[in-house]
Simulated assay, not measured.
Amino acid sequence: MATHLRIHLGKERELYEHPPLVPAAEQARVFTAPDWADAHLLRMLAPANHVGFLLQLGYFQISQRFYVATRYHAADIAYVAQQVGLGADDFAAARFIMPTSSSSVSNWASAGSRRPPQTGSTRRPCA
């Protein structure tokens, strides 16, 4: 059986490699920390890591993909940084590195982040 791999070129590839655009009206829903994330957030020493974690989690919930932090959208960074009590400039995307071991990524990614948020769920604003 032959398998065909579609290779994205140009604009398609560019769109695929960047996180989805989140409208301002949806940022509160997308970038809200679920209760299960509290333990992960408490272990992060630098508040800027909270920003990176919440952005990566929000983008993952939308697209089921992880993205390079240097490609996060400025409006999303500003929104999440404000929620955590930082300025947008306090988050250095080049210094934010997601855990790379398969166990640490799968642990937090499978802890409930794949479920879409529901009305009346236990999600709460981050900070």
Rank of each mutant, 00 (worst) to 15 (best):
T32H: 13
T70F: 14
W36H: 08
Q83T: 12
H40E: 10
I77L: 13
G85E: 05
A78Q: 04
Q64K: 12
A69Q: 08
L45G: 15
V80L: 04
F53Q: 00
G87M: 10
P34H: 12
R65V: 10
A37N: 05
A74S: 10
Y67N: 04
W36S: 02
F31D: 01
H50E: 11
F66E: 01
Q83Y: 07
T32L: 07
A69I: 08
L41H: 13
V80Y: 08
D90W: 00
H40R: 10
D89N: 07
A78Y: 08
L41R: 02
G85K: 04
Y59F: 15
T32W: 06
A75I: 03
F66C: 07
A39M: 14
L55F: 11
R71S: 08
Y72D: 05
L57C: 11
V80M: 03
A78I: 03
G52R: 02
A33W: 00
G85Y: 03
L54E: 08
Q61E: 11
L57D: 07
F60K: 00
Q83K: 04
D38V: 08
D38N: 13
V30Y: 06
D90H: 03
V51M: 03
A48I: 03
T32P: 10
A39I: 13
P34G: 12
F53G: 02
N49I: 00
A46D: 15
T70C: 03
A33L: 00
S63I: 09
L86D: 15
F66N: 06
P34I: 09
D90P: 05
R65S: 14
H40I: 11
G58N: 10
F66P: 10
V68H: 05
F66M: 03
Q82Y: 15
M44D: 12
R43Q: 13
F53A: 02
R65I: 15
Y59L: 01
T32F: 11
Q83C: 11
G58Y: 06
L55C: 05
Q56C: 14
A74Y: 13
L41E: 09
N49T: 01
A74Q: 15
D90R: 00
F60L: 02
Q83L: 11
Q82D: 14
D89Q: 02
D76N: 06
A81M: 10
V84G: 04
A78E: 14
S63Y: 08
Q61M: 07
V80K: 00
R71A: 15
D76M: 04
A81T: 14
A88G: 11
V84T: 12
R65L: 12
V68K: 01
V30T: 08
Q61N: 12
A37I: 13
S63H: 10
Y59N: 00
A88I: 14
R43A: 05
A46N: 05
W36R: 06
A33D: 02
A74L: 08
A88R: 04
Q64L: 09
R43G: 09
Q64M: 07
A74H: 15
L86Y: 13
R71H: 11
H73W: 13
L55M: 09
F66W: 01
D89F: 12
L54C: 11
L54Y: 05
M44V: 01
